[in-house]
Every structure is written in structure tokens, then in C-alpha cells.
Amino acid sequence: MTDSSAGEAVRKRGRPTETERAQRRDEILDAAQQLFLERGYGDVSLDQIASAASVTKRTIYAYVGDKTAVFAAVVSRLNQLILIPAEHVDLEALAIRLVLTLHSDVAISLHRMVIAEALQFPDLARSFHAAGPQKYIDTLGDLIGNSAAAEQLFAVLLGEPHRRRLLGLDGPPTPAEAEAHAKAALSSLRLQG
């Protein structure tokens, strides 16, 4: 056994528990996210993800699906940082979490990758939009009761600061900056309404 594998837990035989299944799925998604960010979508194979996650390709299919599904699952994990049941969140808190998360280094890197590869992999772009932006717009729409206004709000929450992040001109916002940005976005839309 080498030093690099000495710390790895030995997987037991038999049917994994729900906790073990969730942990293995997270390991797959962690490996996939790292590879996607390092190499881009097109230059990553399921075999590489399987190797990096120390699982078989069959396990990836069983736990997540094909490569597009793996990428969608990576994007969906960002939702866990943002989306909580609507009965437990208010619009301002959601707006702040959207700004913090979507302007984060990981979200920006994933967004850049999708933009770079969207024409070659249109399913990737569709998957990214469905798993990310569309979910956020739908959630905002549920909270404010107006899908057109939700789309506007989402656009303002990203806005020029997001474009500057995509271009590498600015770093991620601090919590105070994210809060100020979110409040300004909400205020500007209230003024228009």
C-alpha cells in the first residue's frame, strides 16, 4: 500500500447504506468538478472521473448517469448552498445567497467552462441552464409570484459584477458586498414596479 492510498477508507462489500451512497456520490461529484475545472468538459471522460473518484464507470452510471448528468449534478450541488424550502426563506436572504454563490470562484469557473464549450456540447449548456439559472429563476418566481419579474431580478443579481467576475477583473464579493448588491437589486426593481 502506498502512502497516497494509506489514508483512503477501505470499502466494504455488500449493499452500501444511504450514508455511504451519499458519500460515494459526493466523491464522484468532487472528482468530476475538479477535473471539469482543470481540463474543461470536452477533455474529461467518465473513465477519468471514475479513476479520480476510485470507483468504476458502472458506479458513476448507477449513482449519477452519463457525463452530462454528472455535470448537471455538479451544478445542482451549488443549489444546496442557495435553495432551501421556500417556507424557510425570504426574498432578501435568497438574493444574498444567490449573489454570494453565483459570484463564487467555483460557480464562475463552471460558468466560463460552459460558455467555452456550449457550441460543441449543446446538451451541456441546456443541462447547466436547467440545473442552475432556471431553477433559481423558478424559485424567485415562486417567492414573488411573477416569473417575468423573477427573470429580471435574476439578471440584476448577476449584472455587471458577474460579467466582471467572468472576465477575471474582480474577485468574489465579501458577504457585506453581496448583501449590498442584493439589496440594491431588490430596491431597483421595486422602484421600477
Rank of each mutant, 00 (worst) to 15 (best):
A72Y: 02
S76T: 00
S76Y: 00
R77T: 07
N79M: 06
Q80P: 04
L81D: 05
I84R: 00
A86L: 07
A86H: 12
A86C: 12
A86F: 08
E87T: 03
E87Q: 09
H88S: 15
V89P: 02
A93C: 11
L94C: 04
R97T: 08
L98A: 09
V99F: 04
H103R: 07
D105G: 05
V106G: 03
A107I: 13
S109D: 13
S109E: 15
S109P: 01
H111D: 12
M113Q: 01
M113F: 03
I115Q: 11
I115E: 03
I115D: 00
A116H: 15
E117T: 06
E117N: 07
A118G: 01
L119P: 03
L119D: 15
Q120W: 09
F121T: 14
F121I: 11
D123L: 13
A125E: 11
H129A: 13
H129N: 11
P133L: 04
P133V: 09
K135N: 00
Y136P: 07
Y136N: 01
I137N: 02
D138N: 10
D138Q: 09
D138S: 14
G141K: 01
I144Y: 00
I144F: 00
I144G: 05
G145M: 00
S147I: 14
A148R: 15
A148C: 08
A150F: 05
A150D: 08
A150G: 06
V156R: 08
V156G: 07
L157G: 07
L158C: 08
L158S: 07
L158H: 05
G159H: 01
E160F: 11
H162Y: 13
R163D: 10
R164P: 08
R164C: 02
R165D: 02
L167H: 15
G168A: 04
L169C: 07
P172N: 06
P175K: 07
A176F: 00
A178H: 01
E179C: 01
H181T: 12
